Amino acid sequence: MTNANEDGAEGSRNKVMMPVAAVVQAYANAVWIESDITGNRHVMMQSEAPGAQPHCFCTLRYEHHYTDNSHLEQVAERIASMLGATSPIERRFRDVPTTLPAVAHVVRELPAQEPRVESGAVRFGGDWPGTFIRGDSAGYYAMTLHAILQRSAGNGGATPDAIARIQLRGLYDLLRGCVVGPASALLPRDTE
């Protein structure tokens, strides 16, 4: 014995009745892997449905103590494949944001050091060396870079090239001082 419910679905009295549905449109997902400047891999996906935005399914973080680039690539590829990516999997490089988030302007307070820390390469424990730039030097570098960026944008800039080159040569030497191992040979000492 059958009966019809209000939606028009048919079934027997002892079974749950479900209306019959027809698939009108099925949208596929595009899947790709993005890398960023810090070495992280982001497995991205986006529906082909109108108005769909890219979605970061997962981020695999690079940490030199535990991971390497090859391992991150393999894991990212496996995840992308599970999500439906086909070989060869599309690769993209994530653009560096042109504006930093507000948290980047927070000053991290550390205990005073004796003697005071000067601009140059600094290493905390066994971590990679980094560049410390004292505030007065940072101000000069920021002004010089700003002037060069403004000039390259067609503004004409007022900073003479000689002063800009001196400031940038100092910044180059500061940053070069953090590069250790074989890679340091790629950055020769500026003799100009």
Rank of each mutant, 00 (worst) to 15 (best):
G84H: 10
F93Q: 15
N69G: 12
G84F: 08
S81E: 05
F57H: 14
N69R: 11
E73Y: 02
L60D: 04
L60C: 12
R92H: 10
V43H: 05
S87I: 11
F93R: 15
E77M: 07
G51C: 01
Y66E: 12
A52F: 07
M44I: 14
N69V: 12
P54N: 10
P97Y: 09
Q74W: 11
Q46R: 15
S47T: 09
P97S: 14
G51I: 03
R92F: 11
Y62T: 05
H55T: 12
S47C: 10
H64I: 05
H55P: 00
A52P: 01
H65G: 05
C58L: 13
A80P: 03
Q53I: 13
V43K: 04
A76T: 00
A52W: 06
M45W: 00
E73D: 15
H71L: 13
S87P: 04
V43S: 02
I89F: 05
D68R: 03
F57D: 05
H42A: 02
Y62W: 12
C58E: 09
H55N: 15
C56N: 10
D68Y: 05
T98Q: 08
C56H: 06
I89W: 01
E63G: 05
H55L: 12
H55D: 14
R61G: 08
G84E: 08
A76H: 00
